[in-house]
C-alpha cells in the first residue's frame, strides 16, 4: 500500500552569501514515519529544518510540508506542524495547565476542546496532580514529556523535534522514545534530529547530512548493510570523516 507523502523536498538549497548551507537536498517523508535527520554540527541540519518549518526561505528548490508549499504557504505550514527543541520550550514560571492553554490557544483550539484534551492528557501522563504546579519545579524528565505532549497537543500532521533528548539520562530517553512511537502510531509524522546514534537505530528511516548534502538515506538496516557497518555509529563516523567543513 502506497503511504501518503507529508514532506516532499526537491533540490532544496540555502545560500548565505558564498556559503551553501544546504546543497540541493531531496527526500520524501511519509505519514506516520519516524524520520531521523542526522548530521554533524554545521552540516546544515538546522538550516534545512528551519526551511521546512517556514522560518527561512530557500534560495532555490521546492518542497511541500503537509501539502503546503514551503516558499509561499509557510503560514499554513505553521498551523499544521508542532515543534520542540532541546530547550524544552515551556515557560518555567507558568503552571502546567497555563502552558498547555497558552500553546493550544496559539493554534486556534477552542476553549472547550482545550479543557477536554487537557484533562485527557494529564490523566494519561499521570500528571493530574501537577496541574497547578509551576513548570520550573517539575523534574527534567517530566518537563520533557510535557513539552513533547504540548508540541503535539493540536494534532499536527508533522512534529519537528530538534535534538529533543539533549542532556537527558538514557532511561528517560528510552521513555521519551516510547512517546514518539505512540505519536507515530496516531499518524503524526515525526521528524527528529539527534546526536545519539542509538536513537538513530530507533528511526524508521535515517538521512545523514554531510557538508550540506544528504550522503546517505535509508532504513538503519539498509545503511548498515551498504556501509558494511555493525552499527549506525560506524555508518555515521565513516561519513562524517569525509566532511570538509569544520565545526
Amino acid at each position: 500500500m502506497e503511504r501518503e507523502i507529508v514532506i516532499h523536498v526537491e533540490e532544496l538549497t540555502k545560500q548565505f552569501g558564498n556559503f551553501t548551507a544546504v546543497d540541493h537536498i531531496s527526500f520524501d517523508v511519509v505519514k506516520g514515519e519516524v524520520f531521523g535527520f542526522l548530521g554533524a554540527n554545521g552540516a546544515g541540519k538546522t538550516t534545512a529544518m528551519r526551511m521546512l518549518c517556514g522560518l527561512s526561505r530557500p534560495t532555490s528548490g521546492t518542497g511541500t510540508v503537509a501539502g503546503y508549499d514551503i516558499t509561499r504557504q509557510y503560514e499554513a505550514i505553521k498551523k499544521n506542524i508542532g515543534y520542540m527543541s532541546q530547550k524544552f520550550s515551556l515557560y518555567e514560571d507558568l503552571k502546567v495547565w497555563e502552558n498547555i492553554r497558552l500553546y493550544a490557544g496559539i493554534y486556534g483550539m477552542k476553549d472547550t476542546e482545550i479543557a477536554r484534551k487537557t484533562d485527557e492528557l494529564l490523566e494519561r501522563l499521570n500528571f493530574a496532580r501537577e496541574r497547578n504546579t509551576m513548570v520550573k519545579s517539575l523534574p527534567l524528565g517530566w518537563k520533557q514529556k510535557l513539552a513533547f505532549s504540548v508540541s503535539i497537543f493540536h494534532d499536527p500532521a508533522i512534529v519537528f523535534l530538534d535534538e529533543p533528548t539533549g542532556g537527558v539520562d538514557p532511561y528517560t530517553r528510552r521513555q521519551f522514545w516510547e512517546m514518539i512511537y505512540e505519536a507515530a502510531d496516531r499518524g503524526i509524522t515525526v521528524f527528529v534530529t539527534t546526536h545519539y546514534m542509538d536513537e538513530a537505530e530507533y528511526c524508521d528511516r535515517v538521512s545523514i547530512m554531510v557538508d550540506g548534502r544528504i550522503d546517505a538515506l535509508g532504513t538503519p538496516r539498509e545503511l548498515k548493510e551498504r556501509f558494511c557497518a555493525r552499527s549506525m555509529e560506524e555508518v555515521f563516523q565513516g561519513l562524517a570523516r569525509k566532511a570538509s567543513r569544520a565545526d
Binding site: L55, Y83, S85, K87, Y91, Y103, I106
Partner: peptide, 13 residues
Amino acid sequence: EMGTMEVLLVSPV
C-alpha cells in the same frame, strides 16, 4: 535564551 521564542516563531502566532 529559554528557547520559547523559537517555538513561538514556528507557531502561527
